[in-house]
Simulated assay, not measured.
Amino acid sequence: MSNVCPVKADQDRKARAAAILTSSFGLIDPTATARGSGSVAPRLPELTGARGVLLDNTKGNAGPLLRHVGTMLEEHYGVRPFGMARKLVYSRPADPSLLDDLASQYEFVVTGVGACGSCTSGCVRDAVALETRGIPTVAIHTSVFMNSAIAHAKAFGRPDLQFVEVEHPIAAISDDELRQRAAKIVDSVAAALVGEAA
């Protein structure tokens, strides 16, 4: 007769499975206790003349929305013309070498768009990684996935990450609609970069 408690054995099995999922596949449990801590990078003193980059996570219409936001930041806030970067897979974190390059060349990053479960997770992970590198980062998420973004940020020990909410969905709308949505959020993006409540 085994002396192993069935409940304890089941808990151990679940803990091992969770460890494999998090270490091998990069998955997280957003309800878990924060596994890290830190604060966001210092915000910019001003946007005029600042050099930023748009990090497109390749989600449908993310690139066009980001370009509209970038153009409006240039026109209304005097940032320098934006660079554009893309990661390969929206559901995974960006390659660390890409983030290293962005951190060495730019003063801030605007990334997105979190518009589903996996791309929201990837977007938050990118923002955490960039902030850890000392780069102020704003991640754009659609309204339906803001709660998920906030939960992921807490799970990574970064509850003060800067998120901006855009109306859901973005994938199947026209360029004119994307421009209108960008106009609604550009002031919030600017405020998050300089540390003001939007």
Rank of each mutant, 00 (worst) to 15 (best):
V138G: 07
S104D: 14
E131H: 11
R86D: 11
L54N: 07
N57C: 11
M72G: 11
T132S: 15
G78M: 13
R133G: 08
L88V: 13
A103S: 09
A103M: 09
F145M: 12
F145I: 13
L130W: 02
V89M: 15
V89F: 10
I140C: 05
L47E: 05
V113T: 01
V124G: 03
S121M: 07
G78H: 11
P81Y: 00
M146R: 06
P81A: 03
R80T: 13
P136W: 01
R125G: 00
D101I: 10
T48H: 00
S143Y: 11
R16I: 11
R51M: 03
L102N: 08
S91Q: 10
R86F: 13
Y106R: 06
G114F: 01
L88H: 09
M84V: 15
F145D: 14
H141R: 08
N147Q: 02
N57K: 06
H76M: 02
G38E: 01
A115L: 03
F108A: 14
E107F: 15
Y77I: 05
R92L: 09
G38C: 04
R43C: 13
V124I: 00
E131P: 01
G117W: 00
A62S: 05
R35E: 00
H76C: 04
V109I: 07
A139L: 12
L66C: 13
V138I: 12
P45S: 06
S121K: 08
T33W: 01
G112Y: 14
T111G: 09
M72V: 09
A129F: 10
K59V: 08
G122S: 05
V113W: 07
A41D: 07
A50C: 13
H68G: 10
S104L: 12
Y90W: 05
S118L: 04
I135L: 05
S91P: 12
A103Y: 10
S37N: 05
M72I: 12
P136Q: 07
D29V: 00
G122M: 05
G36W: 03
G117H: 07
T22N: 10
H76W: 06
P42H: 09
D29T: 00
R86G: 14
